[in-house]
Write a protein that binds this DNA or RNA. Structure first.
Lengths: 230, 230
DNA sequence: TTGTCGGCCGATCGCCGACAA
DNA sequence: TTGTCGGCGATCGGCCGACAA
């Protein structure tokens, strides 16, 4: 999974702990996901100091929803006590990925889809700055310059679009290929699409759904066995 | 869930134990569904004699796959021993539902879908006997007699079809409404559709997917807690 | 008896610039 | 600069009988 794309899709509010850092794990939050769990969990402490041994980035195959798999191992009581006393060694600092992305990957844009963008009547209207920043330059000497764009999503799947500069006044549009993308990703007006040009010039794209009723972040049970493994 | 329709969809190879009967439960088969189960399961006996206290019929909302929820309670050791000795009281007899259905519900048919049935080019060709057995009679004095059919699926959802008798030579067809059904149920050539007219004359329909790679029957963990409850 | 096809017509898709916010 | 619309050509869906398996 492309690191920059993952964070772009996750949005600025999401930050992840660094691998090797220490975080506080609240079993209660985990339990609320499994009210019927047949485990003897009544004596679990309210919080456990854990070392982050791995962070894996994923995306739902069906919805493209991004999530992270954070593997934890409980710290020894000794270290735990020192942490409790305020001696934070390798504490739970997080990476400010937005800032990093802005510096190393300036060629990115995110647009909230309009009714016209998602209707079957036409294509996608690309903001001028976005097209100039992220897409390969067109041959503006032609009357209606166009090219084929190829962009990979979080799963590595390649999407093809016809990018054309036309109309009076002139504007950038994605036409052929766009509706297929909207349909497959089940995008609706209000959702956002984002493009991102990597250092290598490779184009990537992702989606960010409009805010909706959510069930809160899912905490998988495989995390639990990591905790138990100590 | 309609009892006859459930068994029609399940097919002739599926039979269920009667409520109140005694069956042999193999924990091993259950465990294979949960290789990572964090339970102390090493001392489970290879088989447990159980009383069937309930049998509930269900169908997957997404795929219409039928499955049954069989609630078990372990028998006492005493009865278990008597059963072991060959004294079968209320043993695990099963209902031959196919035979019962054939007697009480003769108005049923099952057809494997052809390429033409599932193509977008046309509708569904109804076998003559099927239409005459299951559908309300048409007014054959008309040149192209037709009627609207309404049929409920396993979830109670009503599907509407235009049933027409036309062509040279004459044949029964389902036209308007058929493609919507094919799309929603994601039917492909090789799958089967089945119609069934109940005693009350009400029409029902179900699907039976073509044989494919399966993961074997799913054994839910709620069954487990029933076993544990003793 | 019924599976597939060509013909045909209407609905929808999707590309275009006009126009205005 | 860009969101929405009318126009319109191409494609597709879906109903029909012809024909043959």
């Amino acid at each position: 999974v492309c690191l920059e794309l993952w964070h772009a899709c996750a949005g600025p509010l999401i930050s992840l702990p660094k691998r090797g850092s220490v975080v506080v794990y609240f079993p209660q939050g985990h339990l609320e996901q499994f009210p019927d769990l047949p485990l003897p969990v009544y004596d679990l402490p309210p919080r456990v100091f854990c070392r982050v041994v791995d962070v894996k980035l994923h995306a739902e195959a069906a919805s493209d929803e991004v999530y992270a798999q954070v593997s934890l191992v409980p710290e020894s009581e000794e270290i735990e006590q020192r942490l409790r006393d305020g001696i934070f060694e390798g504490g739970g600092e997080e990476e400010d990925f937005e800032a990093t992305v802005k510096m190393t990957t300036p060629h990115m844009f995110c647009k909230t889809l309009t009714a016209s963008d998602t209707s079957t009547h036409g294509g996608f209207s690309v903001p001028r700055r976005a097209a100039e920043d992220c897409f390969p330059p067109l041959d503006y000497t032609q009357q209606r310059p166009s090219q084929e764009l190829v962009a990979k999503d979080l799963h590595g799947y390649e999407w093809k679009f016809r990018h054309i500069y036309r109309g009076q006044p002139r504007r950038h549009l994605l036409t052929t290929g766009w509706s297929a993308f909207v349909n497959k990703k089940k995008l609706v007006s209000g959702d956002a699409v984002l493009f991102l040009r990597g250092e290598d010039g490779e184009l990537r794209l992702g989606v960010r759904r409009a805010a909706q009723v959510k069930c809160g972040p899912y905490i998988s049970s495989s995390m639990q066995s990591s905790v138990e493994s100590d």
